[in-house]
Design a protein around this nucleic acid. Sequence first.
RNA 1: CGGGGCGUGGCGCAGCCUGGUAGCGCGCAUGAUUUGGGGUCAUGAGGUCCCCGGUUCGAAUCCGGGCGCCCCGACCA
Length: 593
Amino acid sequence: MTRLSRYLLPTEKQAPADAEAISHKLMVRAGLIRQVGSGMWSWLPAGWRVHRRIEQIIRQEMDAIGAQEMLMPVLQPAELWRKTGRIAIEELFKLTDRKGSELVLAMTHEEVVTSHVAQLVRSYRDLPLVLYHFQVKERDEPRPRAGVLRTREFIMKDSYSFDRDEEGLAHSYELHICAYDRMMERCGLRFYRVASDVGMMGGRSAHEYMAPCPAGENEVALAGSYAANVEVASAQAKPANLPEPLDAPVREHTPGLTTVEEVSSFLGVPASALLKAYPVAVEVQQNVGENDLGGALAGASAGGGQRSAGMRLVLVLVRGDHFVNETKLERALHSRCRPASAEEIESQIGPAGFIGPVGLQGRVQILLDEAVHDGCYVTGGNERDVHLRGVRPGRDFTFDRADVRTVCEGDLVNGIPISIERAIEVGNIFQLGLRYTEPFGARFLDEEGHSRPIWMGCYGIGPARVAAAAVEQYADERGISWPKAISPFDVHIVAIGREGGPERRAADALHEALRSAGFVVICDDRDIGPGQKLADADLLGAPLRLTVGRRALEAGEVEVLMRRGGRRAGGIAIGAGETELADAVRTLWATLP
RNA sequence: CGGGGCGUGGCGCAGCCUGGUAGCGCGCAUGAUUUGGGGUCAUGAGGUCCCCGGUUCGAAUCCGGGCGCCCCGACCA
């Protein structure tokens, strides 16, 4: 029996002063988590129950697709990470032991699992293989935030698939999509599966599982069946409103006017008729073919720097009402890039705030966004206090083209306008391809005895984020409202009245009946006022609340409240036998979200 | 990495400017009262005022250094 009088559930009336996000406030207030340091959190008993229930759902769905659970260490030799080049990642914790050996704290486990597979898998008969574990991940986050949403240490389920060929990988990927869809549904989350950037993992195709909520750090673009992270989303732009074309560019004096807003209002043209010039410094690759290895990982200035051969400038042009998307830009350039420094701009292009594409031929590559259609635009004049009107791409400057802008709300995909929502990334799946198996020499012998590389995928999901997302999505002004599958308790019994009184005896009987029927029950038997108990029950958010007070005893019925929406259900007869009680609750339970 | 803010009992805060016995609300303990929405009363416990150094007769308060934590930004030229 779980009695609140004996349970560590430190609820608080006031949220921590520094909390912003709803989930942060409520999870602390409800006594689920406590902070240890920046980005470091303990899970208190009730919070840990939530975490474990989510884990269990994930575990069941992984097992259901034939994945095998194992466990790999967090502390790892740095050598493994040198092999893949990921030693250069800044978020990777590095340390040395007393002998001076270099170690890392793993942020994911591709290196270890792949090194195992490279050793242990020999034959096509050993494939396909899916391995997973729940393990702590360590990340030196530049900025931990929002309680358990972005932490430096967290538990993640990560699985790794190993296949004979690309088709096998695609199949493993599909299996994971099914498993992940089911996990999300079973956890009761509203979610989107969106196309995403491959990011630091390197590799090929990728999707993210996004739970929409205001505290989310990501934005997703949605249009009908289209769903993509804004970092990679593409869409058809709303048409620009262009002025009459001119035969040649005309100089305009624009003293001190450097922003799109200033220039467009001064010249009386809409922002969409301007070309915004965004100079970036791009890493020059010596050997593009080899790039898949280091790829997006080797930071511009990071140590190792195997193939950086200096920087060159590229002038990116997007419409004045659009924004450059650096993720898409790096993809288009097949290289890391960063905004150019003030010195680089001044020395190679022109005065900051007045730069443009005209007159740069041969000196700086010009990359024109696809949403810039033929017509005459206003651009910087590469001269202080001067802009040019009537600049026409192709006539007045030459360019390369790419889709490098961030989509806007209302842009079209297949004729359907995009909406943009904030969301928490709770899971992600990647087709890694040979990104990790090659460096570790993970190969197998096929039916003909030929050695072939193993095709790999990886798949992560964070139970803590699932929990936080559920809190965000369903909380109301009274507190948390858990989906029934992941609530710390199924039923919260509020026992009003004095200890030893008839209400308490009735509550105990109810507790025992439901417990033996398989429900996880918490009973508030504390010697405090009824208001406090009811408020704590609201805060903790179990889906079903049963109140046993004098009112109930007189009516001969226990009062039932469904937390979501605060709906009252018909009472349950107190005098009924255990079986009848359990059946009544079971019937109600089936109707809960 | 840039900007801003904060560190005083478990939580939320005041006191600091203008140096002089460390306070308030909630919580906690004990007792009484109350028992369907955080009720009431009484008594009580609990603090290295983040740390180190300096100034001073005297530092939570002033000065210097450090540590910790939070928020915003880190594309809009």
